[in-house]
């Protein structure tokens, strides 16, 4: 019931979007820019710390018969290591730390958001787009550094007749520019939709009284699905980064 009291919006009903509200915890203002430490920043710090603790505690033991924590850490590590090897190849080993950090940050951002009263920072387009834009710029720079001007052959599929260049090149450039958009919108939309759905169904359960048992049952299923989506979207976000990295390193 406390959640209901918290979630009361202007219209008297429950406000499912209340959970996405950002408020400053520590107001900081530098040179006219508002760089306050918000609840979003807080959960980013928590995600980073939790990821660090799990990996450091898991690896710290390093025993032959693994502890539970070690199994978790090793599974996460080998998942991303396999992903990089399968999708980028041996040349991708250099970028493994980058990809692994990204995976852990997104994964724990998604999973920690499933804790009641927490904040899911991956449900904000500003956050996901900032990450996707960073990835996009980094990967483009990696590609240009490795191939020089030859990198731009990425925008013209090999073997296509030269006469199609005026159409194909703009299309390929737009397609390339749409990568950070699709990367960020996918993660943001999945997290936002899932969490809104949870709150809407939750408010149904409250409003319907005794019949609320029906949406409550549905809610249990949706919650399980949300955990799956949280892990899956972190995986998809990382695997797409790997694919883009592959394109930049091998040019097709």
């Amino acid at each position: 019931m406390a959640a209901a009291a918290d979630g009361h919006g202007g219209g008297g009903g429950l406000d499912p979007l209340h959970q996405f509200e950002i408020y400053p915890i520590l107001s900081i203002n530098i040179g006219g820019y508002d760089v306050s430490f918000t609840n979003s920043s807080l959960w980013m710090v928590i995600a980073a710390v939790v990821a660090y603790l799990i990996i450091s505690r898991g690896v710290g033991a390093g025993s032959l018969v693994p502890t539970r924590m070690q199994v978790v850490a090793e599974t996460l590590y080998s998942t991303v290591a396999n992903m990089v090897r399968d999708n980028v190849g041996d040349a991708g080993k250099k970028y493994f730390p980058f990809v692994f950090t990204l995976f852990m940050f997104v994964l724990f951002g998604n999973l920690l958001g499933m804790i009641p009263y927490s904040f899911t920072f991956t449900s904000h387009l500003a956050v996901t787009f900032a990450m996707a834009a960073t990835i996009f710029v980094t990967i483009t720079i990696i590609g240009i550094m490795r191939h020089g001007l030859h990198f731009f052959s990425l925008f013209f599929p090999a073997g296509a007749p030269l006469a199609t260049a005026p159409i194909l090149i703009p299309i390929e450039i737009i397609s390339y520019l749409s990568r950070p958009v699709s990367l960020s919108v996918r993660l943001f939309a999945n997290m936002m939709v899932g969490h809104t759905l949870l709150k809407v169904l939750g408010s149904f359960a409250l409003m319907m009284g005794a019949a609320g048992i029906l949406p409550l049952g549905l809610l249990v299923g949706i919650t399980a699905l949300e955990f799956l989506v949280a892990a899956l979207q972190a995986y998809v976000f990382t695997i797409l980064t790997c694919i883009y990295l592959h394109d930049a390193i091998h040019l097709h």
Binding site: I174, S175, L177, S178, R179, V181, S182, V185, R186, A189, N190, V236
Partner: peptide
């Protein structure tokens, strides 16, 4: 499904 949908919208939106 979501991946392909977003892929489709993103290209159009950027253009």
């Amino acid at each position: 499904g979501v991946r392909i949908t977003v892929e489709m919208i993103a290209g159009l939106a950027v253009g």
